Simulated assay, not measured.
Amino acid sequence: MDEQGRRAGAGTRVRTRAGGRSEDVRRAVGDACLAFLAEGRVEFTTVELAERAGVSRKTIYRWWPTHTDVLVEGLSRHVRQVAPPDTGRWDTDVREFAHRIAAYAADPVEVATAAVMASHRHPEFERLVLDQYTPVREAWQQIVERAVRRGDASSEHSPEGVVNVLVSPLFMAPMMMGRKATDEEIERTVAIVLAATRPCPDTAT
């Protein structure tokens, strides 16, 4: 079975046992995986995972038969922490989203994951992370798309480009300065994005 098939299979196995202890086990394994990633450890053993999660190795092998399946479980939980806001206004959406991203970017899991990817020592892990981020980034871009449809934001720039301008400085602060972006830095970034996306009705023909 290829990697995509294994991922789909792992997700199906867990979802069909939703609720109760099954959901508790899934959360425990996902959290344990993220704890290892926060330490910069991509290659941890099933024995270590079972001990940290407080579940049996048999359970892990049954629901997550490969290491990739375990990483998908943890990363899928991590990257979906930032729900895109929908306040009905572009300026408040941008500001709320920026503050959420700043907190997320400073999360130890995110900082360690970025460091692992920057080292290029685990190319398969890099691809896995990028794969998990694809639908998340698409969801983030919907903030811009909604604003354009409402007429709150200019359509001059692509949603992808606007999101990149907004989130990149907020991810850079933890990586380059070892700390979360300050409120002042967040507001400066928000101001830049709002200025760049301000509608220009006078130019309409």
Rank of each mutant, 00 (worst) to 15 (best):
M1W: 03
E3M: 09
E3K: 14
Q4N: 11
R6D: 14
A10V: 09
T12F: 05
R15P: 00
R17T: 05
G19W: 02
G20C: 03
R21K: 14
V25T: 05
R27W: 05
V29G: 06
F36K: 09
F36M: 10
A38N: 06
G40E: 03
R41E: 12
R41L: 14
V42I: 14
V42E: 11
T46W: 00
V47M: 02
A50R: 04
E51P: 00
R52T: 10
A53V: 04
V55E: 12
I60P: 03
W63Y: 09
W63A: 07
W63G: 01
H67K: 11
E73G: 04
S76T: 14
R77T: 08
V79Q: 03
R80G: 13
P85V: 06
D91C: 02
D91L: 04
T92Q: 11
V94A: 07
V94N: 07
R95A: 11
E96F: 00
H99R: 15
R100W: 00
R100D: 13
A102G: 13
A106M: 06
D107I: 00
A112G: 04
A112S: 14
S119I: 07
H120S: 09
H120A: 11
H122A: 13
E124P: 01
L128S: 08
V129Y: 08
L130Q: 15
V136D: 08
E138V: 01
Q141R: 14
Q141H: 06
Q142I: 01
Q142T: 11
I143M: 12
I143Y: 05
V144A: 04
R146E: 03
V148P: 00
R149V: 08
R149Y: 00
G151R: 15
G151L: 09
D152A: 14
S154F: 03
E156H: 10
E156D: 07
P159A: 13
P159H: 12
V163S: 07
N164M: 11
V165S: 02
L166D: 08
V167W: 03
P169L: 05
P169R: 08
L170D: 06
L170S: 06
F171N: 07
P174R: 03
G178E: 10
K180Y: 00
D183T: 14
D183K: 04
R188H: 08
R188Y: 01
V190G: 07
A195S: 11
R198F: 05
P199H: 01
P199A: 04
P199Q: 02
P201D: 11
D202S: 14
D202P: 03
